[in-house]
């Protein structure tokens, strides 16, 4: 039952540039580091009160997922339990981990907070995307030293081929020490406007673009 899977939409946010389906959108290289994420949120007039409670990693994931799913509204085409979310990165939640650590290192200035601690798990960003879009399918968060096109393509293809999901929101969401990178895309079993098969080779091309 060999069938093909396709990359059907793509959003990347890095180096002060938002790009959708390979076309450059909002860009402002004068904005330093992670402040660009908030600037993009405003530029695209996104509106979600919970955004301001999120840590930076989730904010990045949120903006990328909003733009991706506006472009390709998977939730209108698929049942909530048939949409998988599989994300990876390198630094896990180390950005907010460091912040939590700061609140507990000094016994005389000890103030751990649940609103910080809750974000000290990388998969919280999957939860945020799931809540926003009522998505209930498969969940997985992986850690790699760098984006692994081979693993991501073969694993996602295997869960679609074995009918564990009908489509998938997947990619790389990384943020640490004021550097950030989102490369988020959708995979479906029908060829979309991008006309790109979901193979490691195609994925590498898009990622390195």
């Amino acid at each position: 039952m060999e069938q093909k899977n396709y990359i059907t939409s793509l959003c990347s946010i890095k180096n002060g540039i938002v790009s959708l389906d390979g076309v450059s959108g909002f860009s402002d290289k004068s904005i330093d580091g992670v402040d660009f994420i908030k600037a993009a949120y405003k530029e695209y007039q996104l509106s979600y009160p919970k955004f301001y409670k999120m840590d930076n990693l989730c904010k990045l994931a949120f903006v990328a997922s909003e733009l991706l799913l506006k472009n390709n509204p998977l939730t209108k085409k698929y049942a909530s339990q048939d949409i998988a979310i599989v994300i990876a990165n390198s630094a896990s939640s180390l950005e907010i981990d460091t912040e939590h650590q700061r609140t507990i290192s000094d016994k005389n200035n000890y103030f751990p907070s649940p609103s910080v601690f809750v974000y000290t798990l990388p998969n919280i960003l999957i939860g945020e995307i799931a809540i926003r879009n009522s998505i209930k399918g498969e969940n997985s968060f992986f850690i790699f030293d760098k984006f692994d096109a081979e693993f991501m393509s073969s694993y996602i293809n295997s869960i679609l081929d074995s009918s564990k999901a009908k489509c998938c929101i997947t990619g790389w969401i990384e943020l640490y020490e004021n550097k950030y990178e989102a490369f988020l895309y959708t995979v479906e079993q029908q060829e979309g406007t991008l006309k790109t098969e979901h193979t490691a080779q195609e994925l590498k091309k898009l990622y390195n673009h």
């Binding site: 909530s80 339990q81 979310i85 649940p114 809750v118 919280i124 999957i126 939860g127 945020e128 799931a130 809540i131 879009n133 009522s134 998505i135 209930k136 399918g137 498969e138 969940n139 997985s140 564990k164």
Partner: peptide, 11 residues
């Protein structure tokens, strides 16, 4: 084996 999300609350 399978996984899922509640799509309800983060904590």
């Amino acid at each position: 084996g399978a996984s899922s999300n509640d799509a309800n609350h983060i904590s």
